[in-house]
């Protein structure tokens, strides 16, 4: 691919590569954001007797982050298995019909 043929020692700024890097950062930020909001509503009750995070809450947060990550990977894998891409305009419909097909052949991992 042209990405690699240019070589890393080249000092040209390649817009495509910059865009990929930006996308990567954005997806990471989005994951972090949703993860933080989700784990906060699941682990931090809306009453503030004190400003500290207590033992139970910390354990909950740690597990929540772990699970969110795993769920994220799991769903990513499902998307890859079904071949759902950003080009799929009718993604939802596709996904549900592919899901039916997937369920019958679901033996991997």
């Amino acid at each position: 691919m042209s990405l690699y043929s240019m070589g890393m020692n080249s000092q040209e700024v390649d817009p495509a590569r910059m865009q990929m890097a930006e996308l990567e950062m954005e997806s990471l930020t989005a994951l972090f954001d949703s993860l933080m909001n989700t784990c906060r509503s699941k682990c931090i009750p809306a009453e503030y007797g004190e400003g500290e995070i207590n033992k139970g809450e910390s354990v909950c947060i740690d597990r929540c982050v772990n699970k969110y990550f795993t769920a994220n990977l799991k769903i990513g894998q499902i998307f890859r298995d079904k071949g759902i891409t950003p080009g799929d305009t009718q993604m939802i419909q596709n996904a549900s019909s592919k899901y039916a097909a997937h369920e019958s052949t679901d033996a991997s991992d």
Partner: peptide, 17 residues
């Protein structure tokens, strides 16, 4: 207390992340 807790929460999530 809420903002203190909020910040500590995001700090902890950041570490685990």
């Amino acid at each position: 207390k809420c903002s203190e807790k909020f910040l500590k929460h995001s700090e902890r999530v950041g570490q685990r992340f």
